[in-house]
Design a protein around this nucleic acid. Structure first.
Lengths: 242, 242
DNA sequence: TAGGATTTGTGCGTATGTATT
DNA sequence: TAATACATACGCACAAATCCT
């Protein structure tokens, strides 16, 4: 039984300003990335319960496409759906966080070793621009801005390897840990001061790496990142034990 | 602050021997693992089109739970769903395969470095048992049996690290590459002979590693695996260029 | 202990996209 | 180019599981 119809398909639809969501795939990606960022930004903190129906309404679709996204986020360890209970944002304890950091440290060094890509002028400019944003951040410390800049910096560094599986895995571990770092830090007494210190230290790391990028010394980038990731986690753990 | 309990009450349920698929989660896992193994065994070779309806019938469910599984397998890079076309088993070319192997080599070495677990008697026995199966395989070379033993061996080695993210990632890359190895090899002229040689070489690797396990020398296990993974890929590539 | 409220899981009909004739 | 076949994507109604009173 044919449905009536058919005005001309999607192409006649009005082009809405930003993202008219042409295909199903683009819509899927948009919802996925939005949700992942929200989880990363602690808009949905660890332990929070997400209701499929709420999300469906928020994104203007039915539960079905939402569930697709949730399955993927669950496969990446950011969510856990439980029948009859809800969909919960995952949390990990310090021991697990330690394990992920140990692995991230090793992977960071691999970025400079496996299929390293010598940065061209455009990439060097991107690094410089990021350093500038980082300096602006120091004048006005803000956890959300810090998270975004940190994330952009991570992606920029990740683009220095041509090994795509490595990029993918590093990214996944990154999204799994930054939100935990942010959550843990935000509960500490000295949060404000600690954040400012962390931003300052981050700025130094960026400056160090930008210098290495200018020299085209990809090998030492790995070592710089290795020590910074390691120290960042140590600071967090030490602060937690105060 | 409410933390999600580590395990859900479902553990109160009785484990029934035949596993008649009690909960939704178990059914999901069963379908997922079955399908993954089928893909790995080339029952669904790269390029094959899977029809959701066929799978639904095969597993005795509707398309809905099948689609959940397909999304997860797609997230892991084993499938790709295209609207209006079908769900296709992914294939990767030699360059990509090379990248994954490069990464697997590094991760294999990390297994012995990050949170190494000293094997107890039970584990040593498991290694010995696997060596025996490997010897039996040499007398009767069979690609499917080889694949299964190889996989069991991989899981056994992976259990030597307490770093769970590392285990998870290694496993994912493993499932992504073995099937491609098998497919590529099966198309070669000297397939029969090559398989026998590969099994023989594999037997030697297992013997080497079992010896290292007996000595509790986890560090050298990493080096042994590193060289074997590397050489295995080189042999495949060289054979392809004949 | 029982039952209702809530939330995820499932089944199925329909819409939409793609390829082929 | 248009029509047709077929596969995935979607929306909705209902079943199953869990929680709380």
């Amino acid at each position: 039984m044919k449905q009536i119809a058919t005005e001309l398909p999607g192409s006649m639809e009005i082009e809405r300003g930003a993202a008219p969501d042409k295909g199903a795939r683009k819509r899927f990606d948009r919802i996925y990335e939005t949700l992942r960022m929200q989880i990363c930004m602690l808009d949905h903190p660890p332990g929070a319960r997400l209701r499929e129906e709420d999300l469906a309404e928020e994104f203007g679709v039915s539960r079905t496409p939402i569930r697709r996204v949730l399955v993927k986020l669950e496969a990446e360890g950011l969510l856990r759906s439980v029948h009859g209970v809800g969909t919960i944002v995952t949390d990990i304890d310090v021991d697990e966080l330690d394990q992920v950091y140990q692995l991230r440290i090793e992977l960071a060094e691999l970025v400079g070793k496996l299929a390293p890509i010598a940065p061209d002028e455009a990439k060097k400019a991107a690094f410089s621009a990021l350093l500038a944003r980082c300096e602006a951040l120091m004048a006005d410390p803000d956890p959300r801005k810090f998270t975004v800049i940190n994330m952009d910096f991570f992606h920029l560094l990740n683009s220095l390897t041509g090994n795509e599986p490595l990029r993918e895995i590093s990214e996944r571990l990154y999204y799994q840990t930054t939100r935990i770092w942010l959550k843990t830090a935000s509960r500490l007494e000295r949060y404000e001061k600690m954040l400012a210190e962390e931003i300052s230290i981050f700025h130094r790391e960026v400056a160090d790496i930008v210098a290495a990028v200018e020299l085209g010394d990809l090998g030492s980038i790995g070592h710089i990142r290795r020590s910074h990731i390691s120290m960042s986690f140590r600071r967090l753990r030490n602060e937690s034990l105060r």
